[in-house]
């Protein structure tokens, strides 16, 4: 066990205390207090803009479970998360594996190209894809020779948003998986080679177990971020057609900042918080890792 090095000077102690106090104050003001306020607000008819704050008990939660759009949004969110996380992991890992392969040249070029969408602003990307999906002059219909109104078709609208999201985000997974793959000791591969393992066996029994921490990290962070996704929907579909692309976080935004039902929005937000915690725990369990 590492022995803790004692702080060497009074200056270090002061610096540590300042940083700890700052972070504690910061987290309290900008995280803890808002969470507590939102939780309390979820039991109230609450509109901070005109000062309404009336106790209504569990009405917001009852209303939430009876509201058909809530269930549409929840089911869309789960589908969205499952599909986008899966594609992000599969695509990210495949491309990372290809880049670190000894057969690939110009690794830096590919790494840069794949990472570029990640550093592009999401709103700008969403607008560009919205134009690409236009049924009259959009690039996608023209290239594929189709006549589909992608964002106004209840069958295609959510998948269209998913495709944009995967394209935007897979580069981040590529970089993470590359670092995971490069950290696997080469001795293991040499040993497997001597033992006569084929490529699949090497990947299945050496690479995958060794990059499991990276995998867990990518899955968990993706899950948390996609459960909160609403920008692509806001820009590309506004939840439509009808409620076909409503995601849970978009519903929170809609209730809070369009209809000013802050109490109701807080109830939905708390449900999402619990769902996020459950899904995160489940992911840890499935991947066999603990925090």
């Amino acid at each position: 066990m590492l022995k803790r090095r004692p702080l060497q000077s009074r200056s270090e102690v002061i610096l540590r205390n300042i940083v700890v106090i700052f972070l504690t104050v910061y987290m309290t003001i900008f995280l803890l207090v808002p969470i507590v306020m939102a939780f309390a607000g979820s039991f109230h008819l609450w509109n901070p803009l005109n000062g309404t704050y009336e106790w209504i008990g569990l009405d917001n939660y009852i209303r939430m479970f009876r509201y058909p759009t809530f269930w549409t949004a929840m089911s869309n969110t789960l589908i969205f998360c499952a599909v986008v996380v899966t594609f992000r992991v599969v695509l990210g890992l495949s491309l990372a594996y290809a880049i670190v392969s000894r057969l690939t040249v110009h690794k830096t070029f590919f790494r840069t190209v794949f990472y570029m969408p990640t550093v592009t602003p999401l709103v700008a990307v969403a607008f560009v894809w919205k134009i690409m999906y236009n049924p009259q002059f959009g690039l996608i219909d023209q290239i594929l020779g189709l006549d589909i109104n992608w964002l106004y078709d209840s069958v295609f609208a959510l998948p269209a948003v998913m495709v944009m999201t995967v394209w935007k985000d897979f580069g981040y997974a590529v970089i993470l998986f590359m670092s995971g793959l490069l950290s696997v000791p080469s001795d293991y591969y040499e040993a497997s080679n001597i033992d006569g393992a084929n490529a699949w066996q090497t990947f299945r029994y050496i690479t995958l177990p060794m990059i499991r921490p990276t995998m867990v990290f990518v899955v968990i962070t993706s899950l948390i971020s996609y459960l909160q996704a609403y920008v692509p929907v806001m820009v590309m579909t506004e939840g439509g057609p009808g409620t076909a692309t409503y995601l849970s976080s978009y519903l929170v935004y809609d209730q809070a900042f369009v209809k000013y039902n802050f109490g109701y929005a807080s109830a939905i937000a708390f449900f999402i918080l619990i769902l996020t915690a459950v899904l995160t725990a489940l992911s840890f369990k499935v991947t066999g890792e603990r925090g």
Binding site: Y152, D153, S154, G240, P241, G242, K259
Partner: peptide
């Protein structure tokens, strides 16, 4: 009118027109 009227009629219109409800 509160925005709920306009917002929800917009959703209804799309449901009828695009989702054939």
């Amino acid at each position: 009118m509160p925005s709920t009227m306009e917002e929800n009629l917009k959703i209804a219109g799309q449901d009828i027109l695009y989702n054939n409800k």
